[in-house]
Computed example of a mutant assay.
Amino acid sequence: MTDTRPQPVQKLRIVFDEGEMVGPGKAELLEHIRDTGSIAAAGRAMGMSYKRAWQLVETMNAMFRTPLVVRSRGGALGGSATLTQTGTAVLAAYRDYESAARSAGQPHVDRLTALLRPKDRDV
């Protein structure tokens, strides 16, 4: 029998106030917008509707002093969306926070993992 437990995943969310938070989903959405230039494409890449993606963007834009994402309306080819300087800074700060927290927290995760009951499976 072998322990088949997957490696633990640390998911970090920063809650500033009720309804105002940044976590892995919003960070991923910002990355997809940065990479695709489109809120709709970013939402599709994450399996969410354009409406939901736009709601998350509006929430983030309202949270910070200046918007994180700006969009321009398009004609026949559609519009585009880009991260602002603030959007790029928020994404970088969140990813740096994630990295630092993972590094600092890994010994604690390892201690907790060692205390888990093994998940055995016949191989």
Rank of each mutant, 00 (worst) to 15 (best):
G78Q: 09
A42Q: 00
G37W: 05
T36S: 10
G75E: 15
G25M: 09
G87H: 01
E58Y: 01
A40P: 13
A92G: 12
M21W: 10
A100F: 14
E18P: 08
A53R: 01
G79P: 07
G25F: 02
G19Q: 00
Q55N: 15
A89S: 03
R121E: 03
V69T: 01
F64N: 01
R34K: 09
S80H: 07
M1T: 10
L116N: 14
A45Q: 05
M63V: 13
A62I: 15
T59L: 13
G37S: 05
D35E: 04
F16A: 02
V57P: 01
A100Q: 14
T36N: 11
A53I: 02
M63Q: 08
R34N: 08
Y94M: 14
T4E: 01
V15C: 10
L116C: 07
Y50I: 15
S103M: 15
L77F: 12
M1A: 09
I33V: 12
G25I: 03
M60F: 09
D120K: 13
Y94D: 06
L12S: 09
I33C: 00
R52F: 15
L12A: 02
V109T: 09
V69G: 01
V123S: 13
D110P: 02
T66F: 06
G23Q: 08
T36E: 09
A53Q: 07
R111E: 13
L116F: 09
V109M: 12
A81R: 03
P8M: 04
